[in-house]
Simulated scan of single mutants.
Amino acid sequence: MSSPRGLIEVDGQLLRWPDLISIRVIGTLYMAADSFEVKVNNSLMLSDWFKKNQEIKIYLGYVQDPNRWYKNELEHVFTGKIDGVSPSFSGDMTCRIIGRDYSAPFLDTTFTVAYAERTASQIASLLCSKYGLTPNITSTTEIIDRDMYQNRKEWEILQSLADHEGFICYVDKNKTFYFGQRDLSDEEIEANLFYRMGFKSNCQIDFDDNAVDSFNQVTVRHYTQKQLIEGTAKNDTLIESMGQVKERVYYSSKVKTQAEAKQLADKLLPEFSRYVITGKASKMAGVPTIACEKKVSVAGCGRFDGNYYVERYDLTLNKQGFLMGLDITSLRPDEAEQYRQDLYSSDSSILGSSRKLGSGTL
């Protein structure tokens, strides 16, 4: 029978398994950084070794022999940097380290490069090289208006540019900077969620099926020289199913003509009219290969059975076990705009030695 295990590697050196108390990794989509929290036994003053900005890699998974195992048996799930070190010099002598992935510097830094005519891919390349990441950037040709990328956080700019081009943008666990089309080919089921199905049962899950935040008509509006510029887009199918028109009015100074207003309304409608079922699954065994936009299947929940996309995951490993929580949605998350909330400001966020680290894994 396999046993859950985990390792952290700090600046290339592995922390011994006996020194680890718990590991937690939260993954989310696009605008928010993936984040981690590691708690260790500090009786040997490991807090003297941990420093801000050290690189950390996290490995999680299952091993066949819990008494003799190696790093290559685990899944590499996270790479980032330490943001904070919090030792507790009390009865328990522990140390907590927290941090984020390599999108964090973009989230923290305002773009201040002097104005020049640039395309979206040129701006992406400029920022990618600034932080020494490996580029995987799709070339674009349209020159971007300076207003889109002046005096804003770098990650906000990159996400806006990605939206503009119909792309997504993220930094993966291998420090590759991706700016390009979403991969729609991966439809493999990564995990199966069972509720009230005897010995197969493996989770608890809550669903939400409502139209509180769903709009079936979007109107883009702008006043210029006392003239109204306006364009409207509507979802007739959703209007019929909801039994009424539910309109969202969006003001934009960027639109200069009725045609531009209509074009922007057409673009915004799919985002504002998302009529989806969402769910929160908990108390299930950790799956180290889980990732945002991966698919999971649900069974045992009546009409809510089916396949869902992951939009957030929470992996927690300690000496008692390896558990996972998921936020899921019935439709593929199509718009990065939905997820523009840094985990640092979220209630669910993680963030709110004289002896060197050993090189062994046992």
Rank of each mutant, 00 (worst) to 15 (best):
D206S: 15
D206P: 02
D206W: 05
D206E: 14
F207G: 06
F207R: 07
N210L: 08
N210G: 11
V212H: 03
Q217A: 06
Q217T: 04
V218A: 00
V218F: 07
T219F: 03
T219P: 01
R221Q: 14
R221T: 15
I229Q: 02
I229F: 01
E230N: 04
E230T: 12
E230G: 06
G231W: 00
A233F: 10
D236I: 08
D236M: 00
I239K: 12
M242C: 02
M242Q: 06
V245E: 07
K246Q: 04
R248W: 06
R248G: 00
S252W: 08
V255Y: 07
A259Q: 14
E260P: 04
A261H: 08
K262A: 12
A265M: 12
A265D: 11
D266P: 02
L269F: 02
P270S: 13
I277A: 04
T278I: 08
A281N: 07
K283S: 15
P288S: 13
T289G: 01
C292Q: 02
E293D: 00
K294Q: 00
K294H: 13
Y308I: 05
Y308L: 09
Y309V: 04
R312E: 11
T316M: 14
N318H: 10
K319L: 11
Q320L: 09
G321T: 08
G325D: 10
